[in-house]
């Protein structure tokens, strides 16, 4: 088990959103205010880690032909638990994320990791993988939220009830923001720029490596 490698893969080189291109729906849909992004990211992190642990523990028991159905039942169980917990303790978050919390069941990141990693690896490695992939997803959401909230609305850290009554800290003067960025269009455009940046950065580091080898 190579924790350092898993860390790097989860956060950068195999980032679930920017490199594996999984879980696009929620990434674009809910990233309008900071609180949503953090809440969604942490929910996925918890569900992913728990389902990774259970699935890798059961991997020798689950028959190959019905494994997808088994994965979905395990994932749906944890999603329901988190959904009910959020409804009970953080109702504001549950309201603003709406249908996207139960939809974590069909988030391809979780099913993708179950199929691609947990079904072949041990419990400890799968748990670590869940945590790092979850962090990789969360940081992308947080960056998307920061960019979209700042450009679209002129504020940062919105939605947190203890900062300025959920209105966030105003950075740009009132009326300067480009409303389009907070709308669905902005989701597509900001994510496109992030992925493009990632492709550029990965290509650059690849080039550097080959040059070093050549010297």
């Amino acid at each position: 088990m190579d924790i350092k490698k898993q860390f790097k893969e989860g956060l950068v080189t195999q980032n679930p959103v920017l490199v594996q291109l999984l879980g696009m729906c929620s990434t674009m849909a809910i990233t309008t205010v900071f609180f949503n992004g953090v809440g969604m990211g942490l929910s996925v992190l918890i569900i992913l880690t728990c389902s990774n642990i259970v699935i890798s523990a059961l991997r020798k028991v689950i028959p190959n032909s019905i494994r997808i159905a088994c994965f979905i039942v395990v994932i749906a169980t944890f999603v329901t638990i988190v959904d009910l917990l959020l409804k009970a303790f953080v109702p504001a978050l549950s309201d603003s994320l709406g249908v996207f919390i139960p939809l974590i069941v069909v988030n391809c990141i979780i099913l993708g990791r179950a199929e691609g990693f947990c079904y072949k690896n041990g419990v400890a490695a799968s748990a670590v993988d869940g945590i790092f992939q979850g962090i990789g997803y969360t940081w992308v959401l947080v960056v998307m939220c920061l960019v979209r909230e700042l450009l679209g609305n002129g504020t940062i850290l919105g939605g947190l009830s203890f900062i300025n009554d959920s209105n966030g800290i105003r950075i740009l003067p009132e009326g300067v923001g480009a409303l389009g960025i907070s709308l669905p269009v902005g989701g597509f455009l900001v994510l496109a720029c992030l992925i493009a940046f990632m492709q550029w950065a990965l290509a650059r580091s690849e080039k550097k490596k080959t040059e070093e080898v050549a010297q």
């Binding site: 597509f188 455009l189 493009a196 492709q199």
Partner: peptide, 17 residues
């Protein structure tokens, strides 16, 4: 070059949106 493939498709989808 950085926008090739997926990102430019996302931009296109954004414009349709």
């Amino acid at each position: 070059k950085a926008f090739e493939g997926f990102p430019i498709a996302l931009v296109t989808a954004g414009l349709i949106a």
